[in-house]
Design a protein around this nucleic acid. Structure first.
Lengths: 191, 191, 191, 191
DNA sequence: AATGAATGAGCGTTCATTCAT
DNA sequence: GATGAATGAACGCTCATTCAT
């Protein structure tokens, strides 16, 4: 038997690709990725059918990582607000710790080659988050709003928060807390 | 000078570029743009030094258009909330009417070649919006949040709203109103 | 107006391609052709959509040239045998004078990328030759054989003759005459 | 030595290579051959030093097979014409039964990488055919023609015949007989 | 100013071959 | 011997840009 495909090599490629794409855009050459990964140009094509597949795989991988991270250490007890804040906190912290992955994600999101199937498949990973949001709605949030919308606003607000934390890291806690407050008030206050 | 450069041609190029970039990404060829514009390949370079300059110019043009549109018909009287809603409404309507320009904008925003100067220059066009936000803060919004943050959330929330209107156009009014409510509650409610 | 496409450049490319393909096979790189033609790599793609189209065009061009050459100076009067010998002679002479084109032709004939349409289109150029053959048949040749078959044998025999002339140029006339005699006897003698 | 090289594997490779080359040309990848043969990519290089050697070996193998087939069941008695017809018949039948090998052969014949030694070595296998032809000459064929030329015409005509049989299989006998008649008349008739 | 042929650097991908397993 | 991951040179082709017309 020959050498088996190395899961590690695949991960290295994905990880390096995120960095390179973050810095130079998705138009960065595949050669620049393999070179940064210390591999031969052809090796990338052993693990991914082509550049498109690499990018789609990278999207899936980042999204999965993010989903897992957001729900990590999720408290069984506590109010809905506390639970949501926990997710929010994980999300924002992940963004601060993984600026390259975040940047790569943003570029892939507006990329024409992202396959609908991949986009949708990753959405499934966020289902627990959906039930959380539904709970929030049932427990007094602005009930007219569909939970998908609330989820999208949650995400948008979190991303905005990350931006500002990146710009002013010393105010990290301030933005994290107040950003969430703004979101929570937005969906609960009766106006 | 023989023939003067035609302002119309320049505008056509920008407008067609927005459509092409929206559909095919910024990696669309300059030839595909001139061809769609009914011009010769070389003509693009008469009006723009290169592709980078075209994209930067397009960003500036769209942002200016957006700024102008958002403040159009701005009421002199009325509450801060009413004024902000007016802006919000213009914003969201613009997005619905200009999906290509909006999509192009999103791609340029995450593009590596966007010049800092251009990014900043366009921010100036939004100064009136800044004073509006400052007024809102002075009039009771969560005072701890810097107005740039509030502005960013305003924008993020508006964009999220546009997404859902695009997906469900028949609920256009619903999303526009409730999206704004969420934003307004977020910055005013005391949590 | 810009520079018009140069018919001469196109011809140069075809001509050089024949030489290069003859020597190095159809797998010769497009760069080796443009370089031998003294042009930039990209120029080939101005005149031909791709390598496949170049090869198909080369096939058509050689076949047309050959058809024209074979029928050149065709005698209005004379016996069928004399007329056919005239064609035979032109054919064999062409092969001797154009070894590269002949070699290229042979390679393209067994190439998978040759389009059926091109293969058939060039057949039309040989229609006058077909009527000649039909005359020969009507005038006493082995009548059972379809003229396409006779034509094919004519060609095969001529090509065999060319091979031997190439190998032994000093016996050029000998092969040309006896090769034809063999063909003519083959189709006329009653066995 | 641990395991001996398997003669069967070598034959499988040659046989599959003929099919693949016939269909996709000599530019078909070695991987496509091993894959079609149900072997690993590297195995091909255990049996052949490289792709070139494989193709040269395939040429030799097909030529040997062909030579053997042509002379199979060769009648000891009978006229020269009958003997030659026997060979002709075997040749044409082989072509009809082995279209892939025939097609592969044609491609290799015009290939630049075919080694002169291999080309010549296989010629030796046809020596009995040569004496046959010499007999024919001695017995009344057009004596001026060298037997190599007659042999070449024999082959060319047989191949032309195969083409037409492939196109019109129901006229198989017709072409086989009349094709030979044409050849025989060609070399015997006094014109 | 407008045109589009010409350019050549650069890219994604293929593939014969090697070699660790 | 058999395997297939790893390699990196080579290729066809694209495309922003130039410039002769």
């Amino acid at each position: 038997m020959s050498r088996p495909k190395s899961e590690e090599k695949r991960n290295t490629l994905l990880s390096v690709a995120a960095q390179v794409f973050a810095k130079n855009g998705l138009s960065a050459s595949t050669a620049s990725i393999t070179s940064a990964a210390g591999m031969a140009e052809g090796t990338l094509f052993v693990y991914f059918k082509g550049k498109d597949e690499l990018i789609n795989a990278l999207y899936a991988e980042i999204k999965n990582d993010l989903a897992e991270t957001m729900l990590f250490g999720h408290p069984q007890n506590g109010s809905v607000q506390e639970k949501l804040y926990h997710v929010w906190s994980n999300y924002v912290d992940w963004g601060a710790k993984n600026p390259d992955r975040l940047a790569a994600l943003h570029k892939i999101k507006v990329w024409e080659g992202l396959k609908a199937e991949v986009r949708e498949a990753t959405a499934e990973r966020f289902c627990e988050l959906q039930s959380l949001t539904e709970s929030a709605i049932a427990n007094g949030a602005v009930s007219e709003l569909p939970y998908e919308f609330i989820l999208a606003v949650f995400s948008a607000q979190a991303e905005t928060t990350m931006q500002f934390i990146k710009r002013e890291p010393h105010k990290s806690d301030f933005y994290k807390e107040n950003g969430f407050k703004m979101f929570w008030n937005g969906i609960t206050a009766k106006g």
